[in-house]
Simulated assay, not measured.
Amino acid sequence: MLLREDAPELYALVDEVAAVVGTRGVDQVVVDACVNASVLAHGVRGRRLLTLGLPLWEILTPQQRVALLGHELAHYSNGDTRHGLVVSTAYRSLTTWHYYFVPIPRPSAVEMVTNLLYVVPRLLLHGMLTVLDHLTLRAAQRAEYLADRGAARAASTEAAVGLMDRILVTESAEVTLRREANRASLTGPHGARAAEGGAEEIWERLRAYMASIPEDEYERQRRVGARRGHSVDATHPPTHLRRTCLLAGPSAPAAVVTGEDRERRIAAELAGARATVARRIVRDGFRA
């Protein structure tokens, strides 16, 4: 976890982006190894927690990072019911309880009885989650489009569209990280320790690989998404539709621009987390 005193420049950027999209900043920032990002409210006071997936952060340009922050924070200013305190708390509580009632794998005789006792409460929890999903589904899909507009206001339409393109190929980033982790594990204990020592180079190789992806691969992914169609029970609209929606509206300039000095300061604040996450990927493997 990064406290405000540990990363004042990052928090200042989050606050600036939040002001542009019409909300407040966050109370805590956590960095993890996922190719994702999210903001959630927790507790009675509705404290906001920003989770930054470092692999996603590393493959974005500075303006695309602003767009990412703008998208996540805009969920709190566009009427997204799933990010409201009541609904988000209910959803998180139900999800947590459902996790605890998951059947025990390879159970013993006693655990088989426990699994049987878990069936009814697990089905009840699953039913409540399904009802909550359906009640908030349309609002959640609409909120994604509105959050994309917030991203464009903060970082520019060009940066928001670039973020959509990166999201299209996040699977490639996941494959690259698995390959890096597997390569370290195949070299044996001594090789793994050496790889862990130079683990931060994983970010350079990840960025280099993502930069090598040709434009026709992005176009292929967009066409695949169009052929796949839109599932009515999906919480997120297809990425190609979100990209098209951004391009269909007027082009917005960037309200928040990060200069080179600011980028270096934020990078310095994230240096410790970057090294920790890289070593964890090399040592424990990558899990999407």
Rank of each mutant, 00 (worst) to 15 (best):
Q141C: 08
V26R: 11
F101H: 12
W57S: 07
G22F: 04
M112Q: 14
T114I: 15
A252P: 00
L2G: 13
R47S: 15
Y76Q: 04
A254K: 01
L129R: 12
E58N: 01
D27P: 00
A151W: 01
A152R: 00
Y209C: 08
S231K: 13
A234E: 01
L163V: 05
Y209T: 04
R264W: 06
C34R: 12
V282P: 07
H83I: 01
V39I: 15
R149S: 06
G259K: 11
Y218G: 11
D148V: 03
L270I: 00
H230F: 13
P238S: 06
A151S: 01
R223N: 15
T95E: 03
A195D: 14
H71G: 05
N78P: 02
N36E: 14
T239S: 02
Y145L: 14
V29S: 08
H98Y: 10
H83D: 08
H71C: 03
A275F: 02
R193G: 06
S231G: 15
V31I: 12
V29F: 03
T187Y: 00
L124R: 10
L241N: 06
L129D: 11
P189E: 09
E219S: 11
E9C: 09
V87E: 10
G259I: 00
D6Y: 01
G22R: 06
H75M: 05
W57L: 13
V175P: 14
V277Q: 02
A252I: 01
H190F: 11
A67T: 03
C34K: 12
L68P: 02
M112T: 13
S108F: 13
A37I: 10
L137M: 15
R228K: 14
G191L: 15
L13H: 06
R243A: 14
R207G: 06
R82T: 15
L69S: 10
C245W: 11
A195N: 15
V86K: 00
R279L: 01
G79W: 08
G46Q: 11
A208M: 09
V21L: 02
V110Y: 04
V282C: 03
H126I: 07
R287E: 10
I213T: 07
L168V: 04
S251G: 00
Y145W: 04
A155P: 03
A211M: 08
P105V: 07
S77E: 05
V87G: 01
L123D: 03
A154P: 04
V277E: 06
S172H: 12
E260L: 05
A90K: 12
N36S: 05
V282S: 08
R82L: 10
L10F: 13
L241H: 07
A109K: 11
L135F: 08
T130Q: 10
